[in-house]
Write a protein that binds this DNA or RNA. Structure first.
Lengths: 332, 332
DNA sequence: GGGGAGCCTGAGAGCGCTCTCTGGAAGAAT
DNA sequence: ATTCTTCCAGAGAGCGCTCTCAGGCTCCCC
């Protein structure tokens, strides 16, 4: 492997000092045009690429940011488009800023220390934490260590850390209101885990609309998996056969619920209307297609990245969600 | 932010030289036990973490490897569990080796140069390319530049580059043989794009079994999307209404085909049996559940990582695939 | 007891780059 | 013409670490 040329070589070839070459490479304005051009030519002729390690060493910047998924790795990239959307958004923004994206999937086993060690040792200019559990200690720890941190999802413990969250409450409200407006009387909910902010907020949205529309709530809790949706639906039907609509806290469970309804001989949407949350691809393939709430995941990734890169002010941001009406709530 | 301690500080605190401290930190055997202990204590007391940039600068290693997805970013992380599996596997193995994973989604727009520049400038000890198009020039370019490269998926142009591929041919053969053994007479195929190795190989597998079992092949081509599967299925039915089985080159298209069959009034599996490929989550949710071919994606990621990390010999590896029989080929 | 051999530690030279500081030239102002 | 200002290029000091090399100590063998 031919040794990569150093700045020194470039400077020599261009007949200037290393300092000047550095200035040109870094786009300083204070260089005479013909010298700049000479250096630029030398760079191209030699195929010079700056050594990031050397640069980092002196600038104390790493020009890379970490994207951390504290979930057990196995669950992270399943069917959930949230994660992929975030990755895409982050990736685009990072790429635009000409920085690097370091991906860290921390399993349960000591991955924490690893992230902490890595992030606090200057490897990284900032950390984006895609946490689902609002109680994660990692963001706080890193922030205290002086590492720029931005979270996806509002921490359940109030804190001053910047985050980008989806409007789960608003999305759930719109979804349930849609059911109310469709004339549904007995609207149940299948909630998600109540230790996740998404689970909590979506249930809160459901509750708030039911209260306003003077209906009694009836709730079963699942764990965001399809099977738990099926089980929850069966329980709801057993509890109250009069149910004519169900708001489900995510699509996977909604698909499971649809199965349970079919097995129970209830037609969707004629007998029971169904709304999900997330808009996973399978939602639109379902039969009938699932009405659901879409989240701007890619936008979330972009905002997260821009904040951690200091391209926009670090703040606590709430992104709007959107109701996607399909066949599971409206007869064709 | 409190300044991070340097090796110098650690050495001072332990009352030794920087060189000795370095030796301890790097686990050299040639240090007296009590000195080693003193240094270790100093490291802990100060919370010392080595500066990777400084280390890289002198060792010429980056302790990180890049995982490149040359697909347009938007398509990469859709529903396809192949990618997530690879990421998971790679991530685990990299983590175990205590290195970093740099994720690069190169869109179409000049992402190439960026990867090339990045990978050849010593940022990275190796590159894993998750290419789907076997004609990708990137692997060759990097290899020529002396960067260790491993590809996921066999390049369609024969080369000596190491890769890890799935046994697409074998999987397709098993799938089609399963249809033959189920007594199906008229077995069609919906092929994938013929510029992707997976598309080519899966079709080859289909063809080989049909030839051996003395059947005529009947083929429509899709582009791995669900809609293209629907369209292809319609065309097949129009071409030959006698079809009683279809081998589909991926699950997404198979799901689309299932829709077309339902709309055409054909029962699955009674009238037409259906086999897919990939085993995406939605395959098992489908009604009936889809018989398909599962690929060891996580294992693929692990092997890719181990090869690029030189933990195992760089070679051209073929991973076995597995037929998963479900309701779309066997009546309950 | 003398001379190696072996082992550990410390000194010091860089890795490639950025950035401050200084010097010198050119233009502006007196 | 002289001084001041401005602007640009170069010299040089490090960033924090690794690693070679040399020195000094201990231990063993003759």
């Amino acid at each position: 492997m031919r040794a990569r040329p150093t700045l020194e070589k470039v400077a020599a070839r261009a007949g200037v000092s290393r300092a000047t070459a550095s200035r040109v490479v870094n786009g300083s304005m204070r260089v005479a045009p013909q010298i700049r051009e000479a250096v630029t030519r030398a760079v191209e002729e030699l195929g010079y690429v700056p050594n990031q390690a050397a640069r980092s060493l002196v600038t104390q910047r790493a020009d890379s940011i970490a994207l951390v998924f504290p979930e057990p790795a196995t669950r992270v990239f399943s069917e959930d488009p949230t994660f992929s959307g975030i990755i895409r958004g982050v990736s685009m923004e990072i790429e635009e800023a000409d920085k690097q994206l370091v991906l860290m999937l921390t399993g349960l086993s000591g991955g924490y220390q690893r992230v902490e060690r890595y992030a606090t040792n200057g490897h990284v200019d900032g950390v984006i934490i895609a946490s689902m559990h609002g109680t994660d200690p990692l963001p706080g720890v890193l922030a205290r260590r002086g590492v720029p941190v931005v979270c996806s999802g509002r921490p359940s413990v109030p804190s001053s850390l910047p985050y980008v969250d989806m409007d789960n409450v608003g999305g759930a409200e719109r979804a349930v209101r849609h059911l109310v407006e469709g004339g549904r009387r007995r609207i149940a909910a299948i909630a998600g885990p109540q230790d996740m902010i998404a689970g909590i907020d979506r249930l809160a949205g459901y509750r708030s609309v039911l209260r306003d529309s003077d209906r009694r709530s009836i709730i079963a809790v699942g764990d965001f998996t399809r099977d738990s949706g099926t089980a929850a639906m069966r329980q709801l039907l057993a509890d109250d056969p009069e149910i004519d609509a169900v708001f489900v806290a995510n699509d996977l469970m909604a698909l499971g619920a649809m199965l349970a309804l079919r097995q129970a001989g209830r037609r969707v949407p004629d007998d029971v209307a169904l709304v999900g949350f997330d808009d996973i691809p399978a939602a639109s393939y379902a039969e009938p297609a699932l009405t659901t709430v879409r989240q701007p995941t890619e936008e979330m990734g972009r905002r997260l990245a821009r904040m951690v890169l200091d391209l926009e002010e670090k703040a606590q941001v709430m992104l709007p969600t959107e109701l996607v009406v399909r066949g599971s709530t409206t007869p064709p």
